[in-house]
Simulated assay, not measured.
Amino acid sequence: MSMLEGKVAIVTGAGGGIGREIAIAMALAGAKVVVNDIGASLTGEGETSATPGQQTVAIIEQRGGKAVVNTDSVADWTAAQRIVQTALDSFGRIDIVVNNAGILRDVIFHKMTPEEWLAVINVHLNGSFFVSRAAAEHFRKQGSGAYVHMTSTSGLIGNFGQANYSAAKLGIAALSKSIALDMQRFGVRSNCIAPFAWSRMTSSIPAETPEQKARVARIQAMGPEKNAPLAVFLASDAAKDVNGQIFSPRMNELFLFSQIRPIRSIHSDTGWTPELIAERALPAFRSSFVPLERSGDVFSWDPT
């Protein structure tokens, strides 16, 4: 039996890139899939189109799978309810939610507008909450369900010019952990993937200096399909004991990410004053400070 046989999955942002590959892989693994995509530009602006989602559905059907398209926006509470209802109306149940939909509005922080901030937060963070929340009651009632959320090393580690995206993606990691804690009693799991792939979401990475060009070349070598096997596994019953974790596939590598914990402590019998912190705590902590790095600094070697 295929790993997702009999299950119904929603994959948001499945009109292309990572989302499309996950939707196809889940269908090949036996799931019936709701392919959600509004068909907008990378920035989320301009006209929308059902064509990208329909193309994904066509690929799935050509390979013998079952899928339907949905063009509702994840960034709207009522529309998110309709996304889940599409699964119920089309296939009678919902077992898996993959929160993949996203846009980019990359701007250096001191030039970022409220509109650029809110647009990205609304799609990534609010959208992940809205769709997850819409499915939660159904998961609770049936005593099972799996969430797979897309976080990013831009949030987990850091990146230039992406305050909105980084904040949203780190927020998604916290959202996933909260869902895992709150819903484990109902047999519901929630995990994150921090994907590495050349797709529409990474095509805006600057490639002007030799170092930037080398980094982009490394990412271009990683196709979006490399993330799909991990998503299928996390959505399957084989991952029934995996909850609240963050994983990352990078070409043929798999990473399990740490999550924030205290790394150093210092005690004062008399309490702390600002002066005492400067005199005693700062020297003690300095060697343990987290470096001011971005994702490309940490993942600096060629993928294999």
Rank of each mutant, 00 (worst) to 15 (best):
Q212P: 08
E45T: 15
N100W: 03
L230V: 07
P274Q: 11
V74C: 07
K111W: 06
F109Y: 13
Q54A: 09
V98I: 12
N36I: 02
E275T: 13
K111P: 00
G46F: 10
V188C: 00
E293S: 11
P210M: 10
I24E: 12
I205F: 13
G171M: 08
A235H: 12
N243R: 02
G158Y: 08
E21S: 15
W117Q: 05
A50S: 15
K111V: 00
H138M: 06
S73T: 12
A173G: 05
A167G: 14
M1I: 05
V34A: 11
D89T: 14
Q245Y: 01
A284T: 02
S295T: 09
G143M: 11
N122A: 15
A14Q: 04
T209E: 13
S268F: 08
S295C: 01
P210S: 13
S190P: 01
R20D: 01
R20K: 14
I246C: 05
G244H: 00
P283K: 07
E208G: 09
A9M: 06
A278W: 04
K213G: 05
R294F: 02
A136T: 07
A79W: 04
G17P: 12
E115T: 06
E293A: 14
A174D: 03
F109T: 13
R63D: 05
G19M: 10
D269Y: 07
Q162W: 00
D106M: 13
S152D: 07
G19Q: 10
A75S: 15
S248M: 14
F139M: 02
V74R: 04
W198Q: 07
G127H: 00
S41W: 13
F160L: 05
A23Y: 12
K240R: 15
G17C: 08
A27G: 05
T209F: 10
E279M: 05
G92F: 06
L175S: 01
L118I: 08
D37M: 10
P52V: 13
A80E: 11
S73I: 05
N252F: 09
R250S: 09
R20F: 04
V232R: 09
I96Q: 01
A228S: 06
I83P: 00
I266F: 11
S248W: 03
A40W: 09
L118P: 00
N243C: 09
G171K: 02
A31T: 14
A50I: 08
F91D: 11
A235W: 07
F186I: 02
Q162N: 10
I108S: 10
A163E: 04
D37S: 15
E61A: 13
S132D: 05
I60L: 10
A194Q: 06
F129M: 08
G92I: 10
A80R: 02
L170P: 02
V148T: 05
Q259W: 13
Q62E: 15
W77H: 08
